[in-house]
Design a protein around this nucleic acid. Structure first.
Lengths: 255, 255
DNA sequence: GACGATGAGTACGTATGCGTACGAACGCTC
DNA sequence: GAGCGTTCGTACGCATACGTACTCATCGTC
């Protein structure tokens, strides 16, 4: 699980955006890890041990009331990181975070991150910028849940997922989607059929092909694109100069 | 609007929780202001000029997609402050914030707050703790919008509002509630009748009396109480010693 | 190549909430 | 105390989504 830590080529956009000195601060603590499907990165009320900068794959933040009934409130891919609460100074979260699409990440001990955050103001600034985007994403989810039809919420979810996967095939079952969206499994099936009827997607067993994002975006209405736009505004087009070595970045959101 | 700034007695719980030195840092910049109904404290995409520590009344954060269709995603009372995005290092927000129940606040220029935040790590820590609670509140709203019936969402909203007002009378019209919850006005009327039938509330013209919180809590299910509990966990019972002078604090959430 | 497990299609009755609309009640102003 | 604007009660038809449940398809496994 550990790795030669001398030189990473980052796919994670946050790591790519680090200044050289901040990169030097973090890199010694980063460990390449694989993210297995349904692996739990954070559990409600438990101490957060590690924070993950996603390189490939998707982590999902799900919230619940005091009991069960989890619903997804945030999506994290190679544009972001887990451990929002650590950034804000907490050691735990009432939410759970788990892997929704397997991949890899660079992980850092929460304590090491805390130390680095105290040392470097620019690091704090950078990561808190991501916190902003994440907060906005959560707020948008709240609005989407209130105002969008099931098909619309599904459309929004597909777009956000595809952005983070960077592929046209989304490997998810209806059952899983229904849990994420907090709706009935059969409802997902029907909504997917509706999208399929419009030639927007093609559904296979355990997999959804995205055929036409434009059509899907129409379904999601105005509730797709704002966090993505805010991300671009805050992080800008990554200037290759004076930045940490960086792999070609994952596709960004279309507006 | 200005004020003798030498001695404040704070009702705002965040200000109350300030260490003496942090209080000394902020106090010179605080101005007592009145919050008028529907006054806009932040507008989407506009620079955030001032940040408000609510002393009495309620501010409401509403989010929208790229277009209209605003829905409330956060509530702020004397336990909190506006300007979350300033805390996170931004100068603007895609959300709007406006006064939902009139009152008063202590306001500080966003720039002055930024300077103070840079100077004092303990101040940063404290205010970011509130940011945590606010983020959790937003996530809970997302879950509530996905899973709760209209009556449940209304119940949750009534409880949160009453916590912040500290009174048993909530002065709101059905029309206004419908906008906040993102539902139909007539739907609010019906849901209120349902609650009234259970003797949980009593609805007058433009005003709702809270009669029995227990019954209302049953309606809100598990989706009321988590942010409130987290607030108490993080801020604890305010120890009167070594703290800034503080008025008797507003009622806290019952669990 | 049969079996079990998982995933997907479908269906029926019901509940929740929407859009719209109209009228009644209340409260303020002149 | 007449007039008017706001607020609230109510109603009807319809869309959306639910809960439940049964069947069929697909896949991996022995």
């Amino acid at each position: 699980m550990a790795n030669d830590k001398s030189k990473f080529v980052f796919r994670n956009r946050l790591l790519c955006a680090l200044s050289p000195s901040d990169a030097a601060l973090l890199t010694p603590h980063l460990r390449a890890v694989t993210l297995k499907l349904r692996q739990e990165l954070e559990q409600p009320g438990r101490p957060i041990r590690r924070v993950y900068f996603i390189e490939r794959g998707i982590a999902s933040v799900v919230s619940a009331g005091i009991g069960k009934d989890r619903v997804e409130t945030g999506l994290i891919g190679p544009e972001g990181m887990t451990g929002l609460m650590v950034l804000l100074g907490n050691h735990q979260s009432p939410n759970a975070t788990f892997i929704q699409a397997e991949g890899t990440a660079l992980a850092i001990d929460a304590d090491a991150l805390r130390v680095a955050l105290e040392k470097s103001e620019s690091l704090r600034r950078l990561l808190l910028k991501y916190a902003q985007v994440f907060v906005i994403q959560t707020a948008q989810t709240a609005v989407a849940n209130a105002r969008l039809t099931l098909e619309g919420r599904l459309a929004r979810w597909l777009l956000m997922t595809q952005d983070r996967l960077g592929e046209s095939k989304v490997p998810m079952t209806h059952e899983f989607l229904s849990v994420m969206l907090g709706v009935r499994r059969a409802g997902v099936t029907e909504a997917l059929h509706a999208l399929e009827g419009k030639r927007a997607i093609r559904a296979r067993r355990g997999e959804i092909d995205i055929l036409d994002r434009k059509i899907i975006q129409k379904r999601a209405g105005t509730l797709y694109g704002l966090p993505e736009a805010e991300y671009e505004r805050l992080f800008g087009t990554p200037s290759p100069s004076s930045r940490t070595p960086c792999a070609g970045r994952a596709r960004t959101a279309a507006t």
